[in-house]
Design a binder for these strands. Structure first.
Lengths: 254, 254
DNA sequence: TCCGGTAATTACTCCGACATATTACAGGAT
DNA sequence: ATCCTGTAATATGTCGGAGTAATTACCGGA
């Protein structure tokens, strides 16, 4: 067994081939360590209750200084993944203490093979929140909101969802709706979930061609919001979320 | 080597006048710094775009080592409050980058005078999520869930919401509902919001006596969940949230 | 005017030492 | 024998300083 640890550092170039945490540009060392450990925890490599090796040992194993390792641990602690106490060591907290809606935690969860049950939970939450957001947007939108939505919709039509530009337009459309709710809490929440869920959408794209043209459904949402019809907006958005769920679900079983 | 270390350290109680972050037992120094800075940012003392003084200067000003200060900054960075770059310094990020649903961030937001608009946003989100949670709970609860809810309800009756034991029972009741949804994402979300919202409830308690006996409303929620009537559960919970909103709103204008 | 090289500033990383808190154990009193 | 208390061991926490790396801002040349 090779004890050689991944060069988290610069370009040792050895690179035993393992997909180790390498820090790209703009990414600090402690950030890379946090990323690596975060994914390890989210993937179940470290189970709740497990206690990590001591600071000195672990830092040495990763070939980083104790400072960098500690700063990474602080990040994980801030997200509720671990807890450190003198003499007791650093242990992984039970799952109900994790900040599952933290954007980075979500990213770590979806970095590997995401837990099916968790994906289901997120879709369920989205199915609850997004229609309600559409309802609020229908009541509070102004001309600017509508213009941005309309532009995004046009861009979606031009590029289709098969292109990156098209998906960006899709995100813009949903973000415009969220902005129109005038609710910051709703905004951060749905932004996180939406990003995570869109990770799985890439699975969908990979698995099969789009089973259906999504544009008309988006138009229905837009029309309802423009008309100020809250109930219709909520229902139209419900349809949209259901469709996304169907697609992803059928892609995941296949 | 005399280590005259005011404020931030032990509980010297001297307090050189400045309201510095004091660390209680079980709270590390860097945690105290993060708490202090987090509250300062949430309270608007540091505005988005502001750039903090350099590490050396700030750490010196707080009379702590750079290590402790840096670890605190990592925590804030993990929560999306600040961003650090070489040569540019550490700047406060725009509000839409903040993880407003992070439990600690919420605690910091409610540590001082909470922003009225933000409280409104949270109640709005709660009004969206909690009825939906009750609906799911009605569909998925098992005997254990119902037993826990029933016990909590009995405890609420015994102690009333005026006592701490009564409020604990109230929390248990709502938590039991969330657990019955079998949705971890929903659980962490509503747990955070609920805790934050209950901060404001203490304002309510302070301002006026309970305007209404809340037990019957809770019982209606329980009955609907026990009967498996999803629609009725959602509606009953909606009433509950509305009442809490009314109370808090009337307390905040007073 | 614009572009590229250079210098200065700031965060980032590392190191080694000491302090502190918590656990675990041993010893004595009940 | 059990429980409590004091003590020692151990891992995290805190400290101070030194050196590195990255980004910005400035300056000079095309």
């Amino acid at each position: 067994m090779v004890k050689e640890n991944p060069s988290l550092h610069r370009d040792e170039t050895d690179n035993g081939g393992a997909a180790k945490a390498v820090r790209g540009p703009g990414r600090r060392l402690h950030g890379a360590i946090a990323h690596k450990l975060g994914m390890a925890i989210l993937s179940g490599q470290y189970a709740p209750g497990d206690t990590l090796s001591g600071e000195v040992a672990f830092a040495e194993e990763l070939e980083v200084s104790r400072s960098a390792y500690r700063e990474a641990i602080q990040v994980l602690t801030a997200k509720g993944l671990v807890e450190s106490r003198p003499k007791a060591g650093t242990r992984v907290l039970p799952r109900n203490r994790w900040n599952l809606l933290d954007p980075e935690v979500l990213a770590w969860a979806f970095a590997g093979e995401p837990d099916i049950q968790f994906v289901r939970d997120l879709f369920e939450l989205r199915a609850i929140v997004e229609p309600a957001a559409a309802r609020l947007a229908a009541q509070r939108r102004d001309k600017d909101d509508l213009r941005i939505m309309k532009d995004a919709l046009a861009a979606m039509r031009r590029h289709t969802l098969a292109t990156e530009a098209g998906r960006a337009a899709d995100r813009d459309f949903h973000n415009a709706i969220l902005n129109a709710t005038r609710n910051d809490a709703l905004l951060t929440l749905t932004a996180s979930i939406g990003a995570a869920v869109n990770w799985t959408t890439q699975y969908k794209q990979r698995a099969r061609a789009l089973p259906r043209n999504p544009i008309p459904d988006h138009v229905r949402v837009y029309d309802a919001i423009a008309a100020g019809d809250a109930q219709a907006a909520a229902e139209a958005m419900g349809v949209l979320v259901d469709l996304a769920l169907e697609d992803t679900a059928s892609a995941m079983v296949g």
